[in-house]
């Protein structure tokens, strides 16, 4: 897929053949991972986003690789002052891979300079963010929430507890796995994610996600109209909601969802503008009697 990543894997392998190579301890790797796991976004700003989380995650590694060598430490830290932002859960693989790159540099690999490392990091931020957003935020979380909502209907805390446990186990162990794989496999781990096999997996998961979201919408969202036409005796001869449901149940809900999607995806409207538009539509709908929640004291 990406020639620069493949080249890089070879570089790591060459470095590993050298005798008495520096090796990161499991303790340092785990400290780095936990720092990333917790701190990747705690000091967020629009200007630097995850940069400080990244610096903190690299610090334990750099201290171990260059003990008592302040100049080398400073040089390495300087590398990671460059801007970084991606989807943080999946992006853990980049941090893990980077641990391997830094190890390679510490072992005297001349080609592994700051520029190379930053080039690789910058090149991966975008693709990983795209996959991560659709996979983690767009599929896994909605599925877990969808199941949890079902368990919590009627006000039971069970669903919320299920979500807390399931999501956190998934996030912690998933991120840990990605970090370790990123370190062990280097560019190959990333190749898997953005390569052809990864793409097939991703497409399959978005089919899964699409269907589950469909079921979530039909179960939890309900847009209904109160519009009806009355005959002379005041009896309704056309109840629009029933007619629409005859075509297929929940049709009005599906139409509204499609319209919102169309406005945002095809017309480039921001979610806030769409929400404001819905307020206007709701207001007009109430005025003409299309919507009526049917409330009174």
């Amino acid at each position: 897929m990406n020639p620069t990543i493949n080249d890089d894997v070879e570089i790591i392998e060459e470095a590993e053949e050298e005798p008495k190579a520096k090796k990161l301890s499991k303790k340092a790797l785990m400290k780095s991972f936990h720092t990333w796991y917790y701190g990747h976004l705690t000091c967020f700003s629009q200007e630097h986003m995850q940069t400080f989380g990244y610096l903190c995650a690299m610090l334990p590694l750099i201290e171990e690789l260059y003990p008592n060598d302040e100049d080398k430490q400073a040089e390495a830290m300087e590398t990671y002052t460059a801007f970084f932002n991606t989807e943080p859960q999946l992006g853990t693989v980049i941090v893990g891979m980077n641990a391997g790159l830094e190890e390679s540099r510490a072992n005297g690999n001349q080609e592994m300079d700051s520029e190379t490392i930053n080039g690789l990091r910058a090149g991966l931020m975008g693709p990983i963010a795209g996959i991560g957003d659709s996979l983690v935020v767009g599929t896994v979380i909605p599925i877990l929430l969808g199941i949890a909502l079902g368990m919590s209907s009627g006000g039971s805390p069970l669903g919320a507890i299920f979500y807390i446990v399931a999501w956190n186990l998934f996030a912690y162990f998933g991120m840990r796995f990605l970090y370790v794989k990123g370190y062990e496999m280097g560019g190959k781990a990333v190749d898997f994610l953005i390569g052809a096999q990864g793409e097939a997996l991703r497409d399959a998961i978005s089919v899964l996600g699409g269907m589950v979201i469909g079921a979530v919408s039909a179960t939890w969202v309900s847009v209904t109209t109160s519009l009806q036409l009355l005959n002379d005796e005041g009896e309704a001869f056309l109840v629009l909601q029933d007619k629409l449901d005859e075509v297929f149940p929940g049709m009005l809900t599906a139409i509204f969802i499609f319209a919102c999607w169309w406005l945002m995806a095809k017309k480039g409207m921001s979610p806030i503008k769409v929400m404001l538009l819905l307020v206007v539509i709701a207001f007009l709908g109430v005025l003409v009697g299309f919507f009526d929640p049917g409330l009174s004291y």
């Binding site: 659709s134 767009g138 909605p142 969202v221 847009v223 919102c260 769409v274 539509i281 709701a282 109430v286």
Partner: peptide
Amino acid sequence: TLFTVGSILPCVGIAILLKQI
């Protein structure tokens, strides 16, 4: 209007999600 908006707003949430996939 407030109640009606409340029942339509989830459509935006679902649509944001659909935009991803």
